[in-house]
């Protein structure tokens, strides 16, 4: 722990992390219900209520559990996925970043947790046997490859910095001007959710689950999806996050309030975008390929743009330090370099 971090700030950060995690877990089923509602409205289907998803989870939780011999492992996988999903909810900043010096993971580690949760959610279908197992393996492959495809985004965030430090560095970058590459990076992360299996395909994935297992699976999926969306929103516009380094406690708490309001706005916009994306019709294998390709290329474009903006004098003999190490000072350095050259 950093010596600059006082006990008060550490306890406040821990408390707000806890509140953020609870908020994400509670809101996640509502977000899924809202997305479904928007999609149904746009397609002209009869729409369920926004609370339908939450009610289904509660209803499934009370039903008896019928387990095949392979069901034991499926139940374990679901529970593991829920643990990872709640952990991810705690790791993703919602309306505030933690105080400087507070222990926090990097972006790559957060992505690892999210992808591991997605892999565990694919396991029940794989354990079913028969044709379902083939599809389950395909989903495992498609979700597992998301992590290597996110490498450019992780490089953009820097390998040595934690996620809150990275996001706090982006606080002043306007998404319309010098923060534009990060909007692209956020878009790349958002595509993980946009082109994920949904509807009938998602129903087939949980065909073998019943009772509490199914409820846990649904809740874990919703949590993971909302985590991806929140992470994408943070990357795209980090200025909405409160930063404890910028003032005293009162400033921080009022900024937290404003950040929570802006987060709700971001989530609503994401729900509308997700509803719109449901209108795109692609076959399962093609959608998986398009998802991987889009994530990789947009991440690469974003990383490349920040790299170009933070161009430093090339030092060949000293094994030039990674230029991604400080993209937040990019535009100034870029202008200096442009002036020099």
């Amino acid at each position: 722990m950093n010596p600059n971090l006082t006990w008060g700030w550490a306890i406040g950060s821990a408390l707000l992390l806890f509140i953020q995690a609870i908020l994400l877990v509670v809101v996640a089923p509502w977000f899924a219900g809202l997305t479904e509602w928007v999609a149904a409205r746009l397609e002209g289907r009869p729409a369920f209520r926004v609370s339908a998803r939450w009610r289904e989870i509660r209803h499934q939780g009370h039903r008896p559990c019928l387990r095949t011999p392979a069901g034991q492992a499926s139940g374990m996988a679901c529970r593991g996925a829920l643990v990872l999903a709640v952990l991810a909810c705690a790791l993703v900043p919602v309306f505030t970043v933690s105080a400087p010096g507070f222990v926090a993971p990097g972006l790559f580690l957060v992505c690892c947790v999210l992808v591991a949760g997605m892999l565990l959610l694919d396991l029940p279908q794989t354990l079913q046997g028969g044709v379902a197992a083939w599809w389950g393996c395909a989903h495992l492959l498609a979700d597992g490859l998301v992590l290597p495809m996110l490498t450019p985004v992780a490089l953009l965030a820097g390998t040595t910095r934690s996620l809150p430090v990275f996001l706090a560095g982006l606080h002043d970058a306007s998404p319309l001007l010098d923060g534009a590459p990060y909007v692209l990076a956020g878009f790349a992360v958002f595509m993980v959710v946009v082109l994920a299996p949904w509807g009938d395909e998602a129903e087939r994935r949980i065909a073998c689950l019943s009772g509490p297992d199914r409820a846990i699976w649904l809740l874990a999926t919703d949590c993971l999806n909302l985590c991806w969306v929140t992470l994408a929103g943070d990357l795209a516009w980090a200025g909405s996050l409160a930063n404890p380094a910028l003032g005293d406690v009162e400033d921080w708490l009022s900024a937290c309030m404003a950040g929570a309001g802006l987060w709700v706005g971001k989530v609503l916009a994401a729900a509308v975008l997700l509803g719109l994306s449901r209108l795109v019709v692609l076959t399962a294998s093609r959608r998986a390929r398009v998802r991987l390709g889009v994530i990789f290329l947009f991440g690469l474009l974003a990383w490349q743009m920040t790299w170009a903006a933070s161009s430093q004098p090339v030092v060949l003999d000293e094994g030039a330090a990674a230029p991604t190490a400080e993209p937040q000072s990019g535009p100034r350095q870029g202008s200096v370099h442009g002036g020099l050259s």
Binding site: A180, R286, V290, G293, L297, F298, L300, L301, Q304, M305, W307, A308, A309, S310, S311, V314, G330, P331, Q333, G334, S335, H337, G338, S341
Partner: peptide, 27 residues
């Protein structure tokens, strides 16, 4: 039919990779 758009995106990325040091920080 989906190939050309990926080709174009890849070309853009390559273009940026090639031009990043020459452009002086401009997209």
């Amino acid at each position: 039919a989906a190939l050309p758009s990926f080709l174009a995106l890849a070309l853009m990325v390559l273009l940026l990779l090639a031009g990043s040091r020459v452009q002086g920080g401009q997209f």
